[in-house]
Amino acid sequence: MTEGADAILSALRPVVDGIAATFGPTCEVVLHDYRLGERSVVAVAGSVTGRAVGGALSEIGLAVLAQGDAAGNDLNYVSRTADGRIVKSSTMPLRDGDGRVFGALCVNVDVTALRQAGDLLAALAGVLPPQAPATTFTNDFEDVVDALVRAEELARGRPAAGLGRGERIALLRALDERGVFRVRNAVPRVADRLGVSRSAVYADLAECRREAQQ
């Protein structure tokens, strides 16, 4: 259903511009084609996350890939950019005529000013506001891989390059569950980050998947 997917993307391109223009400079709309792998951004209007055509999908996009065709709309969630801005987003998976997820339409709104005002009121009331989770919005998928590996290193209290094989398999399982290896060319990037060969990552990944099926 490649032609059907391409037609849907073509129909949505003017919608991307229209939504961003309607909501103004604090709004960004991003259109993803996951068939393109790590450089999934095919259209963008607005500049909330600084991505451009050819940019990478984030951890949020990886979550859609991890869910596969069962992925549903994820609406009005809040995340935090690397520079501390607060973004309210909605991610809507796109399906071809056979029901297969092949992309997503994402709307991001910078609500930093609103959140700061809310935090001030919360502080006056003696209530500690919740911290929004960090999300890696970037044009380079390697930055996303690095952020996910860093999170696993922090959880384990050890650098990834110093992990034994059992610990490395557990780390790869965590990355696999996050959808990392559904992206083409992810294995070389992860191998570089872990300081091991690609063949070692392929072997360890196969092992952790066998363990999951037992």
Score class of each variant (00 low, 15 high):
59 E>I: 10
4 G>C: 13
37 G>E: 08
201 V>P: 13
36 L>Q: 05
165 R>W: 06
189 R>C: 06
194 L>I: 07
22 T>N: 09
16 V>M: 02
154 L>P: 07
129 P>I: 01
73 N>C: 14
128 L>T: 10
54 G>W: 00
63 A>Q: 13
197 S>L: 05
153 E>D: 09
193 R>Q: 08
10 S>F: 03
182 R>F: 09
185 N>F: 08
102 F>D: 03
49 T>F: 00
27 C>N: 11
153 E>K: 07
188 P>S: 03
150 R>S: 15
161 A>M: 09
6 D>P: 14
97 G>H: 07
100 R>C: 10
158 R>F: 15
65 L>Q: 04
146 D>K: 08
72 G>K: 06
7 A>R: 13
213 Q>V: 06
62 L>S: 08
107 V>T: 04
25 P>I: 06
129 P>H: 02
120 L>T: 10
211 E>T: 09
87 V>I: 14
25 P>E: 11
84 G>W: 10
81 T>L: 15
64 V>I: 12
2 T>L: 13
158 R>Q: 15
25 P>D: 11
45 A>T: 00
62 L>D: 05
132 A>M: 06
43 A>H: 00
35 R>Y: 10
183 V>I: 03
114 L>Y: 12
209 R>P: 11
60 I>L: 15
126 G>L: 01
82 A>W: 06
8 I>T: 15
38 E>V: 02
63 A>F: 13
182 R>H: 14
74 D>A: 13
113 A>N: 15
25 P>W: 08
12 L>S: 01
9 L>A: 03
158 R>V: 15
116 Q>C: 07
136 T>F: 01
179 G>V: 04
202 Y>E: 08
147 A>G: 13
52 A>K: 03
10 S>V: 04
2 T>H: 14
35 R>I: 11
196 V>Y: 09
35 R>N: 12
140 D>Y: 01
81 T>E: 04
16 V>Y: 01
14 P>D: 00
1 M>C: 14
118 G>T: 07
137 F>K: 00
198 R>F: 11
199 S>Q: 13
50 G>C: 01
214 Q>S: 12
174 A>V: 08
73 N>R: 13
173 R>Q: 14
179 G>S: 06
200 A>P: 15
119 D>Y: 02
175 L>V: 03
38 E>N: 04
30 V>Q: 01
3 E>S: 15
163 L>F: 05
5 A>Q: 05
211 E>I: 07
57 L>T: 07
33 D>I: 03
154 L>H: 14
121 L>N: 02
28 E>M: 02
61 G>D: 04
146 D>W: 10
127 V>R: 00
27 C>F: 04
94 L>E: 01
84 G>I: 09
111 V>R: 11
181 F>N: 06
163 L>V: 04
185 N>Y: 04
159 P>C: 12
100 R>D: 15
152 E>C: 10
30 V>I: 05
157 G>F: 11
161 A>I: 05
203 A>N: 11
108 N>S: 10
158 R>T: 15
200 A>F: 12
17 D>M: 03
68 G>M: 13
46 G>W: 00
